[in-house]
């Protein structure tokens, strides 16, 4: 059996020693649209960042198709949260999309006509072909999100990690993005999406990862996205985990 696209083993993520995700064990299936669901502060973005090596692992390991991320970067596309960048930066929509190709180009080589064509076609795929020369500040929130999406497409990956691609976009854009993600999935790609809007989960995702400081459940949406699991994800605070995290941060057991 070939290695799964994402395999997380006993992963604990800690910022300044304080654990924010506890002991995650997870195997994700290939070729599915996967929702990462949980309340605010549950560690959804942290999960993605830890997989991509942007957050420190306190323990455990992550495998992408059976190998560490560092060796599999070329297989992975990433859409960060929209607020993480300065949209006043002097680049055009096309420039941003072209950044997706930089990883393949390697040091010093400049993007050429081929990369430009690829970026254009990615813009077309997200319905933004007319906006290539626009400075990114002049785009609406939904359009900015599509640009990020197009950049991930330009990475030409097998697995995509998307951090809240629906945040601050209008309904039409959300629908367009979902259609695009579904077509990616139908093309055999695996797509992880951080999402917090519960109503749409059943319609959007084949597989869900329910998260709240720890993994509550992961499995096909039909069997996993149940009222009981949701209650466990959203209901009540995990005082023990919070207390334990604080104890680790302080470094001393409160005797």
């Amino acid at each position: 059996m070939p290695a799964p696209p994402l395999e997380i083993h006993d992963m604990t993520v800690a910022y300044h020693r304080k654990p924010v995700l506890w002991d995650i064990d997870l195997v994700a299936p290939e070729g599915q649209l996967i929702g990462i669901i949980g309340p605010n502060g549950a560690g959804k973005s942290t999960l993605i960042k830890a997989v991509l090596g942007l957050a420190p692992l306190a323990s455990g390991q992550v495998r992408i198709y059976g190998l560490p991320y560092a060796q599999q970067r070329h297989l992975v596309g990433y859409v960060p949260q929209r607020e993480t960048v300065d949209w006043d930066f002097p680049v055009t929509a096309l420039d941003v999309v072209m950044m997706g190709t930089y990883g393949r180009l390697g040091w010093f080589r400049r993007p050429g006509a081929a990369e430009r064509r690829l970026a254009q076609s990615c813009l077309e795929k997200v319905g933004m072909q007319g906006y290539a020369p626009r400075q990114i500040q002049q785009l609406s929130g939904g359009q900015q999100q599509r640009i990020f999406l197009a950049r991930a497409l330009a990475q030409d990956a097998h697995i995509y990690f998307m951090d809240e691609p629906f945040a601050g976009v209008d309904a039409a854009t959300e629908q367009a993005i979902v259609t695009l993600l579904q077509s990616l999935r139908d093309g055999g790609k695996t797509v992880f999406v951080v999402h917090h809007e519960l109503q749409s989960v059943r319609n959007y995702f084949d597989f869900v990862i329910l998260l709240n400081l720890r993994l509550v459940a992961a499995g096909p949406t039909a069997t996993t996205f149940t009222r009981q699991n949701l209650q466990q994800t959203y209901g009540g605070r995990l005082t023990i985990l919070e207390e334990a995290a604080e104890a680790v941060r302080l470094g001393e057991p409160p005797r």
Partner: peptide
């Protein structure tokens, strides 16, 4: 001039640049 592309992606989106392996 040589590192134009690298400086550009790093200045604009450091997180993405790091995930991309720079």
């Amino acid at each position: 001039a040589l590192l134009y592309k690298e400086f550009k992606v790093f200045s604009f989106d450091p997180g993405f640049a790091r995930a991309q392996g720079w």
